[in-house]
């Protein structure tokens, strides 16, 4: 095949107008080592296509590989589900604890000196009684002064 015919076939091929017979002819012609220098790059391209076509064939172990991949993928998805489940569990736990604390104001505060209500009560009672008695001591003194003042007034009036 002369190079003129070949290049016109190539043009047709690239334009997508060539018939199957013509394509086969073209491929065969380009495989020849005697191909024209100007068409060498097209020949290389066609050789590449040919090679790739072979490589794209399904291998004998394709099924096994596919199954293996599918298995791995499902494993991975299972792991992801686990991961979300863990987040959900953590959130749920935090929420529950928060709710319990919120709903249970009777929970003892860490600020408290005593964790035992009975002991805390004794101490509170002690402090309040002390305070109360001191208030009364104070007011008693004031009452004494008041009585004295009233008495003094009475004396002055007489």
């Amino acid at each position: 095949m002369d190079s003129n015919k070949l290049s016109s076939l190539l043009d047709k091929y690239y334009a997508g107008e060539s018939s199957e017979a013509e394509e086969a002819q073209l491929k065969e012609a380009l495989k020849q080592p005697s191909v024209d220098e100007s068409l060498k790059e097209h020949a290389q391209l066609f050789a590449f296509f040919e090679a790739e076509k072979d490589a794209l064939q399904l291998g004998a172990d394709f099924d096994a590989q596919l199954k293996h991949r599918l298995k791995q993928e499902s494993k991975q998805q299972g792991f992801q589900w686990n991961f979300y489940l863990r987040i959900a569990a953590t959130v749920l736990l935090a929420f529950t604890v928060g709710l319990l604390l919120y709903k249970n104001p009777k929970e003892v505060s860490p600020e408290d000196t005593y964790q035992d209500p009975q002991k805390a009560y004794e101490e509170t009672k002690k402090a309040l009684m002390y305070l109360s008695s001191k208030i009364n001591e104070g007011t008693d003194q004031i009452k004494k002064i008041e009585t004295f003042a009233i008495a003094q007034e009475k004396i002055e009036k007489q």
């Binding site: 104001p105 009777k106 929970e107 003892v108 505060s109 600020e111 408290d112 000196t113 005593y114 209500p117 009975q118 805390a120 009560y121 101490e123 509170t124 009672k125 402090a127 309040l128 009684m129």
Partner: peptide, 24 residues
């Protein structure tokens, strides 16, 4: 000594047996 309102709220479970406890 620190006693918080939370602790005070627990005191409601303490029975005020004597009159002084009732007052307190």
């Amino acid at each position: 000594v620190t006693v918080t309102s939370k602790m005070f709220s627990l005191f409601t479970e303490i029975e005020g047996e004597t009159p002084e406890d009732k007052e307190v």
